[in-house]
Design a protein around this nucleic acid. Structure first.
Lengths: 130, 130
DNA sequence: CCTTGCCTTGACGCTGACGACAAGGTTTAG
DNA sequence: CTAAACCTTGTCGTCAGCGTCAAGGCAAGG
């Protein structure tokens, strides 16, 4: 399988695959003319990478999962290093959720005050008519 | 007030203030020798900017709030344009919260499966001894 | 006069995951 | 022969909010 085919099958671009390779995540062989040649297993690797990146992982976070797959496991999640990363990421997400929730609360408050202020300085008609 | 003093009082850097100015958010006068001269009101403006950026706003989002302050209001929140931005941002935050929650759920699931798998292939000692 | 400490503009660096383009080699089909 | 459709490496651009020099002007104190 050449790079174009892998890209299409993985739903990504050749640029991306070369980028992953430059960062040591994908390891194609080379054909006589210098073309990158991938075997079927790399498809699963690339899909694993994509899935994790979509969830907000960085390339460095992804490495253990790739190594896990390459070690022959059916899932990239089950190796100790992967589990460590999963735990860490879960904690990060929790932290981020907390902060976002606080921000949401603040925005809500700010909005309420702003609207209250507008009602004060520029009142709308009430339900009870004249 | 010169730029250094404003920077210190606002808890930021001169570079940052020049950056805001380049983006039309802050408008100092110039003294005879070309130095930027800020009046007291700019301190509140800069603090408003900083507060909003800290919450995740972009410089463009901040503009209405600055204009609102500059229009003589005691709060930057109360002008219609500011309220629009607040609403939009609140919606964005809600969306982001949803996505993060989904991600958290997925990570949790992944982690559970991974650990379950480890228990399967590499069982630990039970509570009931030998 | 010289140093110190402000200030000025200008311009590159950084982070991350690529997109886009350049300039060229290879293979296949017509 | 040539066009089409692959492939190669290399380099710059992107987004945002600045950090970090670089090179120099201005003001005050000793």
């Amino acid at each position: 399988m050449l790079i174009g085919e892998l890209a299409e099958r993985a739903g990504t671009s050749t640029r991306t695959l070369r980028y992953y390779e430059a960062h040591g995540l994908v390891r194609p062989r080379r054909s006589a003319n210098g073309y990158r040649v991938y075997d079927e297993a790399e498809l699963r690797v690339v899909r694993e990478i994509r899935a994790l990146l979509d969830v907000g992982f960085g390339l460095d976070d992804v490495r253990p999962f790739v190594a896990c797959l390459r070690a022959g496991n059916t899932s990239g999640d089950i190796c100790p290093d992967s589990v460590l990363v999963l735990r860490r990421k879960l904690a990060e997400v929790d932290l981020y959720l907390d902060r976002l929730t606080a921000v949401r609360q603040q925005l809500h408050t700010q909005l309420s005050h702003a609207i209250a202020h507008r009602e004060e300085t520029c009142p709308r008609k009430r339900q009870s008519g004249p």
